[in-house]
């Protein structure tokens, strides 16, 4: 079964950027899914059980923190790898990410190659 990756961001361009960034993983057999708000993200997580979720912080419906908190407090989903996209230097964002048990946080603007490397490592894929 192919590994699934969920990208959740309310901004179209960021979604496209993330999709293109992770294209190489798609080539390696992973399946990319996108959500444009927090509620949609949570629905897809429950239905599709992705192995990796990349969450933006500020989204309508549910914030990235709330989605992460739901994932990490759900016994079947707790092993989902969650990367939070935070603003640089915002210590409070990082503290909150730690509090909701996110596996990793990457600051915006991010280096696409770096993000690709981290995502690949999370899934155990060589790129």
């Amino acid at each position: 079964m192919s590994q699934k990756i969920l990208i959740a961001d309310d901004q179209l361009y960021i979604r496209v950027l993330l999709e293109q960034t992770l294209e190489d993983l798609e080539d390696a057999g992973a399946e990319l899914m996108v959500a444009s708000d927090g509620l949609e993200a949570w629905a897809i997580v429950q239905a599709e059980r992705p192995a990796l979720v990349i969450l933006d912080l500020m989204m309508p419906g549910l914030s990235g923190y709330q989605v992460c908190e739901r994932i990490k407090s759900h016994p079947d989903l707790v092993n989902t790898y969650v990367i939070m996209l935070t603003a640089k230097g915002q210590g409070i964002d990082r503290q909150r990410s730690v509090k909701v048990k996110a596996d990793e946080y990457i600051t915006k603007p991010f280096d696409p190659d770096f993000l690709l490397g981290r995502a690949a490592a999370a899934l155990g894929i060589q790129v």
Binding site: Y13, I14, P109, D111, P112
Partner: peptide
């Protein structure tokens, strides 16, 4: 401010 910049840098 960072969102558009993220697009610019990333793309």
């Amino acid at each position: 401010l960072r969102s558009p910049l993220t697009s610019i840098v990333g793309f």
